[in-house]
Design a protein around this nucleic acid. Structure first.
Lengths: 261, 261
DNA sequence: ACGTACATCGTACAGTGTACGGAGTACTGG
DNA sequence: CCAGTACTCCGTACACTGTACGATGTACGT
């Protein structure tokens, strides 16, 4: 399974699955053989529940099959392979995101809301940040999300290309942030060490080896950042700092666009 | 191997390895038994060459062992496990990064240079963007990198905590960008489809299923962004747009800090 | 010369995704 | 009613992963 990427075999197949397009377009729903004992949605839901509970690493074909009460190989009648299953999971959680109307808000609030909604998504489904999105799964969830989020950049004087770039930048930031958080969580889970325990264990040796003459700034700043923001608080600061900086950066661009046109 | 995370067994061991601290501190270098036929550095170098050539997925204990001409299990006399090997690889490429003095440049150029140096790193070693850095490997390479990059934010009026946050934000952006690029590359490699081939294959079905009435903005913007920036060009635009926006955002903060104090 | 600490490495195990082929089932055309 | 056929279901098997364990031989300290 090289790289967890999809589109093995028929490339069309993945898209058709995402949009739940029946195999025979326009023809009557002809069903031969035994009635399916499960469904694509049931498989995807089971996989999502599993990933929510135990992380992406726990999502294996055998485990998922167990949850939907079929044999492992039976999954392959619903889904071409694991990579496609992951794509389906991602599109499914995208589809369920809230999309409240924010047209009346100032643009900064609109954009911040997009960021927050995505952050919430990853808080509920940390694994979602870890799924590869090169060549993203262009399913209904993804499209609805894209459509909705683009609107946050309405009326800013950005052309279509820059509007896409602005959204991409924002989402990249949120996803990277979430990915780090998820990795930290996973690291703690399977090392059994909390951040504090880890520092207590490694701190002394690090102090012995890292002499402040060789790395003066690093030692000072690292200590300051480490002490001021322990663990989760640290992530919180990175979030607010990053988001504020991004918004400020966009506002500069918006001001320029407004001045020009 | 849950999660590719390190610090299995003795947590100290990883740090000691990173700094190449001998097992017996202060004692004479007592060597019993046969002379080692290889070394930690040789193992790490081989792994890096392998990852450079064939991607992170190709880095397996057996393949690396082959390259240093020992049996697979022999690697475990040099390195506690695969996760630690990955940490060592990362610290090694960090250590080799260029660190030209930029004190004379204006801060925007200094910060942009940091971004560019990191981008170059990931261009040479795409796999480096894919290694988990929750609880980053605090080796000499990492520390030297941190020390050097912090200096780019000298004299901006940022306190130590914000200085760390600013650097983190910048590096997060570069790494996320590189990760996407690496994933796209890997996806192309093992699907055998270029971006253009993929679109040619999937475009028709997508057009049939995605009606522009339901997703008007998405259809328009997506087409514009897709046509204006094909593949690599698209990534280039995301880079320059993102970096410029980040720098603008920082400049706003810097102006504020200057006005206050 | 002997004991001991160490490097080397063959074998084995539990786990992964999935290719393949067989068995059984519900529909179709004759 | 009876083939033929398309379909679901699934047991087995394969190549692959990281690594635990234990055997073997080597170079040193005494």
């Amino acid at each position: 399974m090289p790289g967890d990427r999809s589109s093995a075999g028929d490339p069309d197949r993945t898209l058709a699955l995402l949009w739940r397009v029946p195999a025979d377009p326009g023809g009557p729903a002809r069903r031969r053989g035994p009635r399916p004992r499960s469904s694509v949605d049931a498989v995807v839901d089971a996989a999502i529940r599993l990933a929510d509970a135990e992380g992406l690493a726990a999502v294996g074909m055998r485990r998922v099959a167990e949850l939907v009460d079929v044999a492992a190989m039976t999954l392959y009648t619903y889904v071409p392979g694991k990579a496609e299953l992951l794509d389906l999971m991602l599109d499914a959680v995208y589809a369920r995101m809230p999309r409240r109307d924010a047209a009346h808000l100032p643009w900064r609030d609109r954009v911040a809301a997009v960021a927050q909604d995505n952050r919430d998504l990853y808080a509920q489904h940390p694994w979602a940040a870890g799924i590869s999105t090169a060549r993203p799964p262009l399913g209904p969830g993804q499209m609805a999300k894209y459509e909705h989020e683009l609107r946050a950049f309405d009326g800013l004087g950005l052309d279509d290309v820059d509007r896409d770039a602005a959204l991409t930048l924002l989402l990249t930031f949120v996803r990277a942030h979430a990915r780090d958080a998820a990795e930290a969580l996973g690291g703690q889970r399977d090392s059994g060490l909390s951040d504090e325990q880890w520092w207590a264990r490694n701190g002394p040796l690090l102090a012995r080896v890292l002499d402040p003459d060789a790395y003066p700034t690093a030692a000072r700043v690292g200590t300051a950042a480490g002490q001021a923001n322990r663990g989760a608080v640290n992530a919180e600061h990175a979030w607010s700092f990053g988001l504020a900086t991004l918004l400020d950066g966009l506002s500069v661009r918006v001001a320029r666009a407004g001045a020009d046109g």
